[in-house]
Amino acid sequence: MSSTLQSKHVCFSYNKRPLFEDINLNFKPGECIALIGANGAGKSTLLQLLLGLVKAQSGEILLNDTSIANISRKKIAQQVAFVPQSINLPYAFRVQALVAMGRTPYLGAFEFETAHDKAIINLALRKTDISHLHDRLVNTLSSGERQRVLIARAIAQQTPTILFDEPIASLDICHQIETLQLIQSLSQAGKLTITAFHDLNLASYYCPRLILIGTKENGIKTIIADGSPEQVLTAQNLAQHFSITADICKTKEGVSLNKIRPIKNR
């Protein structure tokens, strides 16, 4: 089950405009990682790079020491699952059917789910606490429920790595906490989880490792800081990359930011 994900000297440009430069990251199984950065910093793009959805211009993403560009989508989907940002599901699929889509990478075109697959699907439904919804139509669910359906699909994919693109962006506070606890429990079960965040307090509370993406002086984006909340959430980083000042308090769990204020003169 153990799998490694690495990025080596990755550079990426969008429409010939350089976006990322020299991204070097190493991930280990069981890590719970938060990806932070301001709007437009490139969190989603970095997740898409790690998933092989977009191709790096130079450098490579290594999945189990093989370049992700040389692995078929089906094989990637058996290693890395992805929970997209959009939880807009306008079509009337049943919850059960949508979670079952997570088994797609393991099944042929005409194969039905076996008893083994069904057990995995039910387990995913139970882990995300949506067993009671299994017969509902996804377009009638609340956004918190839809988010959990998509996480259940990623769990049903049974991958060692799960990437989340702003999974709590459209949820109320209770569902935010529930979702983050779910992500935490997944990494405690040995999965590598990488989550894009906006809320720095929640990020530092739930994730022992933070990765800050931001813009360098030359206008190109890269990894600014990578480490524990104390190392990443410094006054300088907050001012430069989030345009805020805050009281940085060290707590038992890590760091908490109080009295967050915007810096006006940007």
């Binding site: 078929s72 089906k74 699952a81 079509y91 889509m101 797609t104």
Partner: peptide, 20 residues
């Protein structure tokens, strides 16, 4: 028939469950 279901949900959904 399976890829069509997932593509209906969106490109990122389809890619994430392993559809080219």
């Amino acid at each position: 028939s399976k890829p069509l279901n997932v593509i209906l949900l969106g490109e990122q959904h389809a890619l994430s469950v392993g559809i080219d």
